[in-house]
Design a protein around this nucleic acid. Sequence first.
DNA 1: GAGTTCCATGCAACCGGTTGCATGTCAAGT
DNA 2: ACTTGACATGCAACCGGTTGCATGGAACTC
Lengths: 330, 330
Amino acid sequence: MIKRTKGVTISQVADAAGVARSSVSRAFTRPDMLSPETVTRIMKAAEALGYVPNHTARALSTGRHGNVGLIVPDIANPFFPPLIQAAQLEADRSDFCIFLGNTEENPKQEDKLVGRFAGQVEGLVLASSRLSDERIRAHAGLLPLVLINRDIDGIPRVLIDSGSGVREAVEHLAKLGHRRIVYVSGPSNSWSNKQRRTAIKAAASRLDIVVETVPAVLASYNSGRNAVSAILATGATAAVAFDDLTAQGVLAGLSEKRVSVPSDFSLIGCDDVLGAVTYPALTSVSNRSTEAGRVAVSLLLDMLQSRAIRDVRYVLETHLVVRNTTTALR
Amino acid sequence: MIKRTKGVTISQVADAAGVARSSVSRAFTRPDMLSPETVTRIMKAAEALGYVPNHTARALSTGRHGNVGLIVPDIANPFFPPLIQAAQLEADRSDFCIFLGNTEENPKQEDKLVGRFAGQVEGLVLASSRLSDERIRAHAGLLPLVLINRDIDGIPRVLIDSGSGVREAVEHLAKLGHRRIVYVSGPSNSWSNKQRRTAIKAAASRLDIVVETVPAVLASYNSGRNAVSAILATGATAAVAFDDLTAQGVLAGLSEKRVSVPSDFSLIGCDDVLGAVTYPALTSVSNRSTEAGRVAVSLLLDMLQSRAIRDVRYVLETHLVVRNTTTALR
DNA sequence: GAGTTCCATGCAACCGGTTGCATGTCAAGT
DNA sequence: ACTTGACATGCAACCGGTTGCATGGAACTC
């Protein structure tokens, strides 16, 4: 059986060291205000008693608890773990802790989480939020907010411009001789999906390539797989998928239909989350999710410091990473 | 520019409703103690002012803040996201929030995070902790702790018994005619790695199969890929890898050496995190990470309720999921 | 040696809730 | 009509820190 030791308070330390509570407090927060001897005496007493400042009490009186929240739609989507990791690391550098929320792609759940987090975090990062602009604006009125992959005026945001990479993807396919391609689209309410579809169409029309869109409903392996018949029906010779997961599903679906990649069909993913880890290595549009997570948290911490909200719009460009699922048309 | 509204306090609501602060407090926490009319009057006033109870203040006086911590060694390892997701969901059901910590496989960082979390969480789940038994015991003395994939007497723990699945894997290979196999091992300080290696050796010796161990240092794609030469040098016809990531690396390495899977070589992964999402579909040992996350949090919440620590040892069995990377020896 | 500064420390109010106990009111019991 | 009890509400202490201001003594000035 393990017994719990309960908290040592500042008063106990003060008694032990023969000083006032305020001095103990200052020994920990502003030691320069005290004489060095007093500080060491207090520290010794604190050490001996095993004193640890109570985070909650400190938060109550200062109003700063050193926590930030991070809300993502789906942790299981491989796009997010690196983002979360980077956010965590960045927060850690400033001794902040991260509250993590997963919304299951559900705006109601997202609203609920924001509410639960508000009050225990100093600020919030919303990644790929599924909330309406109005809801986001409303939340931003209550606490500092930074968005990732949502573009709302007046709210600091970090945008991964997959457009630039997608453009390269189309150019790459054009150079390989493909004239008819498919875009396997993702969730219709996703900002990234709109961005990618728009970029593809623009690039294709510029290069005189025909694009058809096949919807994959969700960004998932199975949707990609189920989309294969529709993809082949278009007569296209190459496809760009909304993300790597979808692409991987398409890959599997094609292989089941004995269409081999890349000799019979070229395929490009987005986000580059699986490309380097699977076989055949997927040609994909790089994502900058790590930077996005880092920058978003760093921006948020800046806001907390300066107490001012600047209208930042931080754009991260992406590029095509060519691997082994694309080849020249014979 | 967005301006922040600052907190409405219980006193303001009390004034507005013409009652004492304590009544407002009770209206929110124990409405049964008040007359229904008073409650509605208070609620109306609160609503009008936009009052939201201050979580921190409440936590300070009650000692309960409704947060639990979850610490994992590597979010980017696909084993963990489903675990985190399930933990989150379970916490959510009881209106708890999750603090997430990522240790980068570093015990120092883990220790630091535990320290930072303690004091703002009511309890902690340590998944695949890299800490020593002593450190874990020490932490368990300070706050309620539940372990995942660490087996320490006296501390509640959830164990994923990959042994059972690994045994099935060896039996499967034996049935296919393989007599000489390789275990591509993972991090040496990992509990799961020990468990898997032990299970393989036991099963193999029982079935009269030769096992050689090839280390892959880290559980990663590249380590697996680099291990291929050593694997082939053993003359084995099949391999079981520490996890799916490693297996995927081995797959890539084999393919580079023109060894095709499964016709020339059979390969089995562990954790089943990629098998269903890549091509060719990887035969793998199922993981139960979702259940593990859910059960661990549920156990922790139970502990918090009853304030008692039971010595729970919850074991989740695993099974082999046969897909397309294993075949009979010709 | 008296006046002025400056520094180290203590005092006490405050952050925003919760809760044990006291008080007052009203209805039921006899 | 008087007691008794139940119930609704208020009072004030408390959770564990932080911080503006007051104080006292030492050093410094002239």
